[in-house]
Write a protein that binds this DNA or RNA. Structure first.
Length: 264
DNA sequence: TTCCATGTTCCGCA
DNA sequence: TTGCGGAACATGGA
């Protein structure tokens, strides 16, 4: 699930539940979920500290710590957070737990293990190491910059939007949504798009990501005119009523409406 | 049982 | 050298 809007929701959730509480202990339920640092060191770094704030960049979530450094979270394909009272077992597929003061705990859940927790001295360094580009909702990414970055790419527009080193935060579902609402075929090469279309894509991208975040990133709550609820065989296009089709673009299966998104 | 998945990373090729 | 596409990765639900 976790693309930019989902992670933005996790950030709000963490802000509302877990900030400024002392971490009394941590628990690692699967060592493989800890990356770039040993489990023991991560646990040492966290113990006794507080999560001071949260910073989201693309699909990454960071929580700067009271004594410096930051707790790093990435949710992969199936991550989630769960805050609750610290008695009994945490939810299924919990990989890491922060035990907090006053009998609470924050569980980091990841069913498929593609995801991570880690520690970073410096957030910018982590982003550079993983070649993470500008955040899709960053103020720095205005229409002109977007057109410049995206319009210089030779790959399919869908893969370009999903490429985290180009723009960070968009995954398979939201790339389909953005292209649908902009009326752009997913397989069109990015550098074949004209300036006007690129600016439209930027406008639509911003609107889609902001709206989705505001609605809690829950597909069921999105406007009916969105593609999101109709991804699948034999589904009608929410705009024209025609049939939605699937297409594989650089190994990822996407959905689009051939009538509303001509070309390719 | 086989296939597929909303993510990242690595590798081979142009 | 850089950018692109495909495959691998781990796990479990359909």
């Amino acid at each position: 699930m976790p693309e930019l809007p989902d992670v933005a929701v996790f950030k709000k959730y963490l802000d509302a539940t877990s900030l400024h509480q002392r971490i009394s202990a941590t628990e690692c339920l699967d060592e493989r979920f800890v990356k770039d640092i040993s489990r023991r060191k991560l646990q040492q770094r966290l113990k006794g500290q507080r999560l001071d704030a949260t910073v989201r960049h693309g699909k990454w979530l960071f929580a700067p710590l009271s004594d410096g450094g930051a707790f790093v979270m990435h949710f992969g394909m199936t991550g989630n957070l769960d805050y609750g009272s610290d008695d009994g077992d945490p939810p299924e597929h919990t990989r890491f737990v922060l035990h907090l003061a006053e009998g609470k705990r924050l569980a980091i859940i990841s069913q498929r293990m593609i995801g991570r927790v880690s520690w970073a001295e410096d957030i910018e360094t982590v982003l550079a190491e993983h070649d993470v580009g500008v955040d899709a909702l960053s103020d720095e990414l205005d229409a002109e910059t977007f057109a410049e970055i995206v319009g210089s790419r030779r790959g399919a527009i869908k893969s370009t939007l999903m490429n985290q080193s180009v723009i960070a935060g968009i995954g398979n579902v939201y790339s389909d949504e953005i292209l649908f609402q902009a009326g752009v075929h997913p397989a069109v090469r990015a550098n074949d798009l004209d300036e006007k279309t690129l600016r439209k894509l930027h406008r639509v991208m911003t609107r889609v990501l902001q709206t989705a975040t505001r609605k809690g990133a829950d597909a069921r709550d999105m406007p009916r005119t969105w593609l999101m609820g109709n991804r699948g065989d034999d589904e009608p296009c929410p705009r024209c009523g025609g049939e939605i089709e699937d297409i594989t673009v650089s190994g990822r299966r996407g959905w689009y409406c051939p009538r509303c998104q001509p070309g390719g």
